[in-house]
């Protein structure tokens, strides 16, 4: 593995991201929506004479849950499949670079471009919030951005796996969108329905929902901002009492698992595939 090669490939990926219309669209949408949200929550802060960062953060969490997985999944799903379709991947692999360098370079480049777009969205919204005295503690904001970045990495890994398993970019994006729908809506709605009909005990409900990396992000972000999960009712209170201080570790572990496992599987597939 050669760090210089990886960095060169990552740079190429960053440049490609700037030319990728999907990516630009999502970034602009994210910046616009986070700005609008902070503006709306500021209207409230004026009334209260209070920083309403809790609620701003809550609506930001909601926004992040919608947009970031969409962005990371489509970008990830395109990564290998698109280049393979265009034939550039075969050209790249013919160069004196190893597959692991190509894979890591691509992943790093896309991760950095996601980080850049998060930085722009949160940063611009943050400036507006801070200027109007509506922001809360800076640490809470930073940790929210950090959690969001981790979430985007989980979805990027899943996107890479989809990309490694498909041949056409169109199919990969389609699967990516379906996965997005599942993570964001179908999974939770299904679990809600199950909880109502089966009368799931709180413990099972909690763990089933933690299978979804989006829920892990949500709980971790709420924990950072509120220091408790009371907001999430009995299941949240159960989690606090049962795991308490270990909860952060549990969330981090689950997130790491969701980042590493799909990425590793994607790499295995990428290494073994003959048609690239």
């Amino acid at each position: 593995m050669n760090g210089k090669i990886i960095w060169t490939l990552a740079q190429k990926e960053l440049r490609d991201a700037l030319h990728n219309r999907w990516f630009l669209l999502y970034t602009i949408a994210f910046i616009g929506l986070s700005l609008a949200l902070s503006y709306m929550s500021l209207a409230g802060a004026g009334i209260a004479g209070f920083a309403g960062f809790g609620r701003t953060a809550a609506s930001l969490i909601n926004l992040v849950l919608l947009i970031i997985p969409l962005m990371a999944l489509t970008v990830g799903a395109q990564s290998l499949a698109h280049e393979q379709e265009q034939g550039t991947l075969a050209y790249l692999l013919a160069q004196p670079v190893t597959r692991v360098e190509v894979f890591i370079g691509k992943y790093l480049g896309l991760a950095l471009s996601l980080l850049a777009s998060l930085g722009l969205g949160f940063g611009i919204a943050g400036v507006v919030l801070a200027l109007a005295n509506g922001a809360g503690s800076p640490m809470a904001y930073i940790s929210l951005v950090g959690q969001t970045f981790l979430l985007s990495l989980t979805m990027l890994s899943v996107g890479f796996l989809v990309s490694a398993l498909t041949k056409r970019a169109g199919v990969a994006i389609g699967i990516g969108l379906f996965l997005w729908l599942t993570f964001v809506f179908l999974g939770d709605l299904g679990l809600m329905g199950t909880a109502i009909t089966m009368r799931l005990p709180v413990e099972q409900l909690l763990w089933l929902s933690l299978l979804n990396p989006l829920q892990v992000f949500k709980m971790a972000a709420i924990l950072d901002i509120n220091a408790t999960l009371d907001l999430l009712g009995p299941a949240g209170i159960y989690a606090m009492q049962e795991y308490g201080a270990q909860l952060r570790g549990v969330f981090l572990m689950l997130t790491a698992l969701w980042i590493l496992a799909p990425a590793l599987a994607a790499y295995m597939r990428f290494r073994l595939r003959g048609d690239f």
């Binding site: 709605l189 909880a195 299941a235």
Partner: peptide, 17 residues
């Protein structure tokens, strides 16, 4: 009616409902 569903607060799924 079913307070344990509070777990899904702030999820887009609850807005979808």
């Amino acid at each position: 009616v079913q307070p344990e569903l509070r777990l899904f607060q702030l999820s887009p799924a609850s807005d979808a409902l």
